[in-house]
């Protein structure tokens, strides 16, 4: 299980990452996260929405209501160029953290 704090910290890159693969709406996004994490992220579905709205306010993503004939209306989110840039920055930072942890834990046993 991934802790609450860590989950919260990763929300932004995860949402941006999912949207980079294509436009999506709230329920699908959360479903995707659950699939990818194998249900290991300690997340309530509802917490997704304030984050989505904040990202939209910061103009990293934008939204549009899509009315399809055979299904319910959906609010689709789309990543903006600024969002893509932000994702790059996030990516860079997570890689740095990752390599730091790698260096710490991949210590080869001394002979």
């Amino acid at each position: 299980m991934i802790s609450k704090n860590l989950s919260a910290a990763t929300t932004k890159p995860i949402i941006l990452g999912i949207l980079k693969q294509g436009n999506s709406y709230g329920y699908l996004i959360i479903k995707k996260i659950k699939e990818l994490s194998d249900g290991k992220m300690e997340w309530s579905d509802g917490m997704l929405y304030p984050v989505l709205h904040r990202l939209e306010k910061d103009e990293l993503i934008k939204s549009e209501w899509i009315m399809a004939e055979n299904s319910r209306p959906r609010k689709y989110y789309q990543i903006t160029p600024a969002g893509q840039e932000a994702l790059m920055v996030e990516r860079e930072q997570w890689l740095q953290v990752n390599s730091l942890l790698d260096a710490l834990w991949d210590v080869k046993p001394t002979i």
Binding site: S44, D45, G46, M47, Y49, P50, V51, H53, R54, K57
Partner: peptide, 20 residues
């Protein structure tokens, strides 16, 4: 249940909206 509690969500949402 999976959607979670509403109160912390409201706090989070209000916090992110207030400056606006």
């Amino acid at each position: 249940k999976e959607f979670g509690e509403i109160k912390p969500m409201a706090k989070e949402a209000y916090w992110s909206q207030r400056p606006k």
